[in-house]
Design a protein around this nucleic acid. Structure first.
Lengths: 119, 119
DNA sequence: TGAATATATGAACAATTATTCATATATTCA
DNA sequence: TGAATATATGAATAATTGTTCATATATTCA
């Protein structure tokens, strides 16, 4: 943000409107968290991982195989998905199985798909 | 993607599963488009713009004022939102009014908020 | 215990991108 | 017509980020 810029330079078209909308805005923190959440969906590799996990629980190696990626790249991205509470995991010996954490992922995915397909 | 890496190096844990999930994956193009769509939601400035437009139609200058940003930055980001068909606009003289293009934006926003707030 | 395997992770590099600044375009109105 | 205003946009810069590579950790099993 340009620290020099002062919005008072603007001739606001509708000052009342501006004040009203400003007062209804969610807290900056929520807006930031929402952006961070959608950022996680905003990468092809992670979106592919999500698509595989929509089907069933899978281990890292299998996800890598299905998505034509490397286990390392997948592991890095699973970490991101984990941090956003989008996936959970269970360990079984050497193998770590990942699955979607809750139904929001599927719902967000579906809403996105609806938007894409209705254009 | 590492072109050298060959997934045949992996000892796939469950080959049948891999083939089954692989066959149900959406086309690469849809996955890519979905990631591109969510990428648009994945920026604080754009998320703020979306929040303002959830309330009502607004012109560029008013959005800039409400979000404490510059008209230039807002205009750049509105372009991105426009390209994803998330916002539409109408001109009225010098002023351009932007609004959300359809209800998907609100729905995606709400699903995201639900996820955030239920953690 | 030691080799093999699955996954995780840190550092580096390359690519993407948001903002700024300068400027261009479009519109109004005196 | 020309000044003022609203918006748009291109280029440059700074910051973020995804992948790779090397390596570390954890687990199994011979």
């Amino acid at each position: 943000m340009n620290e020099e810029y002062n919005n008072e330079d603007l001739q606001v078209v509708d000052e009342e409107k501006v004040l009203r909308v400003k007062s209804t805005l969610p807290k900056d923190e929520l807006i930031f968290d929402l952006a961070e959440l959608f950022k996680v969906f905003g990468d092809s590799t992670r979106m592919k991982i999500i698509c595989t996990l929509l089907e069933e629980e899978l281990c890292v190696g299998d996800i890598a195989c299905i998505t034509n990626s490397t286990p390392s790249a997948i592991s890095h991205q699973l970490r991101v998905l984990k941090q956003s509470k989008l996936v959970k995991y269970r360990k079984d010996g050497k193998v770590v199985y990942y699955s979607l954490d809750d139904d929001h992922v599927k719902q967000i995915f579906e809403k996105g798909r609806e938007h894409i397909e209705e254009i």
